[in-house]
Amino acid sequence: MFMARQVLRNGLFLRSLAPIKITARTVASANAGIKRKSRFDKTMIKPLLLVMIFGSILNAVIAEKRNIIDMERKYKLKLDKLKELIRRVHDNNGKVDFDADDELKLVNLRLGIVGKNATGMKEDETDIVVPKEESLEEIWQSIIDEAKKEVIEKTPDAGVKNKEGIVTDLNVLKDLEKSKKEDEKVYLSGDVHMMMNQPGDLNEIAKEHDKIPKFL
């Protein structure tokens, strides 16, 4: 009897604990789910950062390489030209039948050097070619000159009126008459009349007229 009672008690006890266990499990599983999600997000941040850093480094390296290649090409062009000129002098038995400055002008332009002399390499390096700025300044100057001319041409119109403010010039009077006649010819087309309480309140009229589509 004692055993049976104990078993029954234990059974009841377990039954009473069962809902607590289940709730504990569900909470634990829910927590695990939240943890998993947060872990997933964190792992996505790291590779993204790595990709960004690696990409920026790669970009900088490529740009640097490109600069080096470009610079080497420019200098090699000049070296080839100089070698060619020296060969020409040797072939011509030491006689120079060309202007070195003219020959090297294009190559120097490519390097951004204004060559006064072939020898003045270091001195001329500071003189960077800026042909565009000069031309822009000239254009700007010409625009200003034109504007000034226009202002000067328009000023004589002010002297048409006499001291009392009455226009005495015949040509000006004729022009005024012409413009008045042209103004009289222009009239407002009165095919459609629209009456509104407040000026510009077209929405009200649109509601009244059924023919006017809504989107207008």
Binding site: I68, Y75, V89, G94, A118, M121
Partner: peptide, 30 residues
């Protein structure tokens, strides 16, 4: 650094060749 070294090296080469060419021009003039 590599870029600057390469540039200075190329500049030196250009200067040497320019010097040679100038010498030839001076010889021709004299």
């Amino acid at each position: 650094l590599e870029h600057e070294e390469r540039e200075s090296q190329l500049k030196k080469e250009v200067e040497i060749l320019e010097h040679q060419l100038n010498e030839l021009i001076v010889q021709d003039k004299t």
